[in-house]
Design a binder for these strands. Structure first.
Lengths: 356, 356
DNA sequence: CCCCGTTGCTAAACCGCGTTAGCATGCTCA
DNA sequence: TGAGCATGCTAACGCGGTTTAGCAACGGGG
């Protein structure tokens, strides 16, 4: 466990004062008239010794730690989280930042503690993330440091920018895909058919439904049926689909509000001896890895988790860079950024078959 | 954006010198003969002002930042990652630590850069994690700071402790569950039947197979068949199971080497019109959320991801605390900790039915 | 009455670095 | 020959704490 090489070590080995070494290594050598010979010597010695500046020290004197905090309600419950964090970590690393990750499990006190622990460590900025899109209050701690909301929108006007998936767009595309395949009778699993018939507090559900209804309406179609459910588990999808199959004429196209519901729909269709997509087309949301595992592959609108995390960090770092130049970078103030939701076509959608 | 309260602010407000305030707040007041009156005054003022010590400053003067680094090959590819990180984050938080999270995607240079970036920020300790259990070299950076390997074992003797799931135990239990249900003919999907017939470099595969063969041998049974596959995807499980069903007598029990293989097995069995568990019993490993979504629920041996992450941090923090007392805490040196793999019974295992 | 021991607090150094004012030295030019 | 100006480097301070040596005031004993 040999000690780290400090600036003083480099200076001593190069036969100059620490301040001289500092100037050279920070690139201000020429500006402050350090001779080329000395500069080369310092640089050579620094490289040879493997000197790396101590960022903690910089944090003390300059106030910037090149460190960001990422606080989410949960990092574990879903695949989703991992990708979002991955995008954030990668984007941060590319810009020379490291990320503190914390999770609150929805506990307000835990959130407060975490934000304070991060403030104690002088983070340069904060991302406050949620694993499912929702509305929430903005804690006071976010007022003291540049921040970005991720997969979350503030419940009242705020200067803090937000990054969310474009769920309305996702809903529109889902409906369009079925319409384009020739379907005119579209059944919803997990929400609908009326506007606002979604599980309580589900922003994703609301917006997906909105998009679906818009796109259908443009084609002069209303959702044929829908079942709002409290939870979006496979069991719910199975039951809703069974109920749907009990009624004539048999449904030809389903929009499931997430992939787990779609799994349940697959199970119910299989039980009934119906083929996908020959007898029934299915489209869904989230693009969980599961979608690629099913037979046939499930066509789904992906939540762009990695892009969400990445965008949040990019906004934050840009704001930090801009903070020196302009005190209030107008471009990044209070804006809600909507990230597109790519369509992953796999084979669960086809033209309408014989119904009945 | 009002400034943080500093120690000097507290001292001024309490009418004492900063050093006095520091002594009182660090609990050394009585020891250094600060009067009770002054101590109370300082504490009151500190609380009133909401003073919190600046940890960056402490990092400079004391060397300890109450910060740990968590570097893994990937945080995203699987559910697994999230739970492991969650366990690590929670355990760290309970002990007053915050975690830097980084991921390398298996890139050695990225790993080196990350470890250095963390060293630059004076982390007190490091966890080097892998998302699937494997053997690997230990980078030189880990020699300079207390470290723990997670889901990874060093490829040569080292003083660094490791935390891994008890895969041999998992294999034994999987076999025992089937034996106890009355099965004497057990087919393997994803590995086997011979010792060492596993995908290249899969420590989990090797050890699971070892445990399975041990437990079967104790009952005087050999694996009836097995198929080593390069990848453990649903597609592979589907094909292997189809092949198995083409041969008489029909298999009565399958051990799938992970849940994705088991999904494929479910699909093949369903195609063949066989019921689980009446006709065929299935048991598997990982306890992916998927296992709970299938019909019937898939019995699986859980990889205790959260416990793994938690244990790694606990070992690390204990080592840090012990480092002051004993320079080399013998208890935590080079040991490989094996974490038990709980059985999640769901309903995919039953007594043998009529075969053929 | 002087010395010494307590008691109660504080000044000052230090952690590692960036920053800036300023100190020598040598050269030019009047 | 001395003022003036580059040139080339460094001393000293600050960031926000901890830590230690030591100072002032007071009381008690010889």
């Amino acid at each position: 466990m040999n000690r780290r090489v400090r600036l003083a070590d480099v200076a001593r080995a190069a036969g100059v004062a620490p301040s001289t070494a500092s100037l050279v290594l920070s690139g201000r050598g020429t500006e402050l008239r350090i001779s080329e010979a000395v500069q080369q010597r310092v640089r050579a010695v620094s490289a040879e010794l493997g000197y790396r500046p101590n960022i903690v020290s910089l944090g003390l004197s300059k106030g910037a730690t090149r460190t960001l905090g990422f606080v989410s309600d949960t990092v574990a419950t879903s695949q989703l989280a991992g990708d979002m964090i991955k995008g954030a970590i990668d984007a941060a690393r590319e810009r020379g930042y490291l990320l503190f990750i914390g999770e609150t499990e929805g506990d307000g006190q835990a959130e407060k503690d975490l934000l304070e622990a991060m403030a104690d460590r002088q983070v340069d900025g904060l991302v406050l993330a949620s694993m499912f899109t929702r509305e929430r209050g903005v804690p006071a701690e976010l007022e003291r440091v540049p921040a970005v909301l991720l997969n979350t929108v503030a419940d009242r006007p705020t200067a803090i920018p937000a990054v969310v998936p474009d769920e309305v767009g996702a809903g529109r595309v889902a409906a369009r895909v079925l319409l384009d395949a020739g379907h005119r009778e579209v059944h919803l699993v997990g929400a609908g058919p009326g506007p606002g018939d979604v599980p309580l507090g589900s922003v994703a559900g609301e917006e997906r439904l909105l998009g679906i209804r818009e796109a259908l309406a443009e084609a002069g179609v209303e959702p044929a049926s829908g079942r709002a459910r409290l939870a979006w588990h496979p069991q719910d999808g199975r039951e809703a689909t069974r109920d749907l199959l009990a009624v004539r004429p048999r449904p030809g196209a389903l929009i499931c509000f997430n992939d787990r519901l779609a799994l349940g729909a697959y199970q119910a269709l299989q039980e009934a001896g119906l083929r996908i997509p020959e007898d029934v087309s299915v489209i869904s949301f989230d693009d969980h890895p599961l979608a690629g595992w099913l037979q046939p592959g499930l066509t789904s609108l992906a939540i762009p988790h990695e892009a969400l995390g990445r965008t949040a960090i990019e906004l934050l770092v840009d704001a930090l860079a801009g903070a020196d130049a302009a005190p209030r970078p107008a471009a990044a103030t209070g804006v809600v950024h909507r990230i597109p939701t790519p369509l992953r076509s796999r084979g669960s959608v086809g033209p309408p078959g014989a119904t009945g």
